[in-house]
Design a binder for these strands. Structure first.
Lengths: 330, 330
DNA sequence: GGTGCGACCTATAACGTTTGCGGGGATAAC
DNA sequence: GTTATCCCCGCAAACGTTATAGGTCGCACC
């Protein structure tokens, strides 16, 4: 047995295709009696409208695109999971693409989104992204775009962000409060606004409020690089007494370095991180961190998207609050 | 400017739509000169065939469905990432759905796959899955299904698996070799074949080869449950001298328990795990584990899928080798 | 000058929907 | 009995492709 179609339903009932179509859409032109009959048969024959035909006809797809640098990452995962769930509840599907932080892949993906006529796009831009042309094309086609996490710094785009400045500030303030003297701050790729905002806020807080802030900052990439940078710092003559990690992967590298040197946390070295939640709880003692919750961000982004689709007004930027979760690492 | 279509191209060139269509497909009926002109204009006007129209016409979609219990999980992530990448290289897209281990959601998702006329489905079944009817429906529609990780135990389905038996055996053998006396084995949901195979092989290896195997087995679910179970065992009068963890989440729970009791690894308690790779390296000392690589499994699954699509013969089950990665935890 | 053939192109009918418009029949109004 | 008014419903044309089944032309052949 093949898919059942409007045509087949209409043949069985002896009424026209258009009547069947309208009946299923609860069109006022159709008599209640016929609607009932149609609906009954439709469920009996397991009728499902053909997506492609509908989209071809109506030129809209009920599919959202999500563009992330990489999908194997706790933060993006929880974001995606949240969006996907919300979307499903509202009858949408989700198309996930990875830019792998390469501009050409990113553009190819955005192109695919256009081709598939997605109803909207959630995007976290790649490291290489310089201009917004590719995204602009989407907007030109009235496809709403909501940026998250890694967002463009220009105005005119909708974005949902962790409050990066606040997250970094919270960490810095705790460092001050704990009277740490020499700080090593490790951040991600300096090209990303998220990095710049966190770094700026972190530095500013320390420099303004701390009595004797000795701060060095680096931008390692990935676990291994973070491990090396941290190892070098910890081996130097006057090693830092606290390390701040901008994200989970950096934290993992830092902890590997600390383990390698068999340093005691927090007695010999303190650690504080920004994280999505799981990793800091894996260490002993648990790492004190500022939480950035991908799932919550996903829900926020989705609600913004729905506002955009319904043409309701909503703020250009929304922030998600940041909370400090105390472990025992500082 | 809207999408350019065959019709527009044909209008500009003054030739018929069908000629344009065939020219772009390199049909032998079309003169080389015309082909050249058409191709030129097509790239100039950025022509892209309309997905929906093509699919409506040809009844195939070039989209693969991936069904996993949950997307925020390192193992599935790397699997998905691998499949997605391969798919993209071959001009396919990927539709990802989460069953959240609920049967109704799983069925709804499979239904969506059918509706979207996916070219194939990769599936890791949910805990609740009892029968294969929903999957059978796909096969009936000639949609190939490749199961991975959590696979049905019945014959007649294509599946790619980690060699679960071997992975568990490797761990058990190391335990024997290290002359451990009292073993605590922690496994996942007993309803899943992956769990049963690992547990059976683990138990069998220990019982057959070990001189004095004292083995207790439990099936905790999630981090917290694992932590509790492990905590209870470690507090008992004759505590185990080694804990085996079937997966990453169990490992995290176990390590939390060990940290809580401030036990020294491996002096006071040994740990060994099956893992996708990252987590065991986060501890100090690093955890010894048998590697199960989601990325490799993804590639394997994809190649099986392509064979199925091309109607090439391929084995019903393929296994991915398991390797022991030594840490210092046993 | 038919006939046949190859090379090239077009017309047309689908695929399954949605939708503007028009029409038939019944009832009410005059 | 004619006209207006509703309420239902059907016709047919799209949406952008692909595929089948023709054309049309020029040229060679006996």
């Amino acid at each position: 047995m093949q898919q059942s179609t409007l045509k087949k339903l209409s043949a069985v009932l002896g009424i026209s295709i258009s009547t069947v179509s309208r009946a299923l859409k609860n069109h006022p032109d159709i008599a209640e009696a016929t609607k009932a009959k149609v609906r009954e048969l439709a469920t009996a024959m397991e009728y499902e409208p053909n997506h492609n035909a509908v989209q071809l006809r109506t030129r809209k797809s009920n599919v959202f695109g999500i563009l992330v640098p990489s999908v194997d990452n706790f933060f993006y995962d929880s974001f995606i999971a949240a969006v996907e769930e919300q979307a499903r509840l509202q009858g949408y599907s989700v198309l996930i693409m990875q830019s792998r932080d390469q501009l050409d892949v990113e553009n190819a993906n955005l192109h695919l989104f256009r081709k598939n006529m997605v109803s909207g796009v959630f995007a976290s831009v790649s490291i290489e992204t310089e201009d917004m042309n590719a995204f602009q094309k989407l907007s030109d086609q009235k496809i709403p775009v909501v940026f998250f996490d890694r967002v463009p710094e220009l105005p005119g785009y909708h974005k949902v962000c962790l409050s990066d400045a606040k997250a970094a500030r919270l960490a810095a303030e705790l460092i001050i409060q704990k009277k740490k003297k020499k700080v090593l701050g490790l951040f991600g790729h300096p090209h990303l606004s998220i990095t710049r905002m966190r770094a700026a806020s972190f530095r500013e807080t320390l420099e303004k409020k701390a009595p004797v802030p000795q701060l060095s900052i680096d931008y390692p990439e990935g676990i291994d690089k973070s491990r090396e940078v941290c190892l070098a710092a910890l081996r130097s003559s006057d090693r830092p007494d606290v390390v701040f990690c901008m994200g989970d992967m950096i934290l993992v590298g830092v902890m590997q370095a600390i383990h390698e040197l068999q340093l005691k946390v927090p007695e010999e070295i303190s650690v504080i991180s920004i994280s999505n939640g799981l990793f800091p709880t894996m260490y002993n003692p648990k790492i004190t961190y500022v939480e950035t919750n991908g799932g919550k961000l996903g829900k926020l982004a989705f609600s913004q998207m729905m506002s955009a689709i319904r043409h309701e007004p909503f703020p250009e930027i929304s922030y998600l609050e940041a909370d400090l979760i105390e472990g025992g690492s500082i």
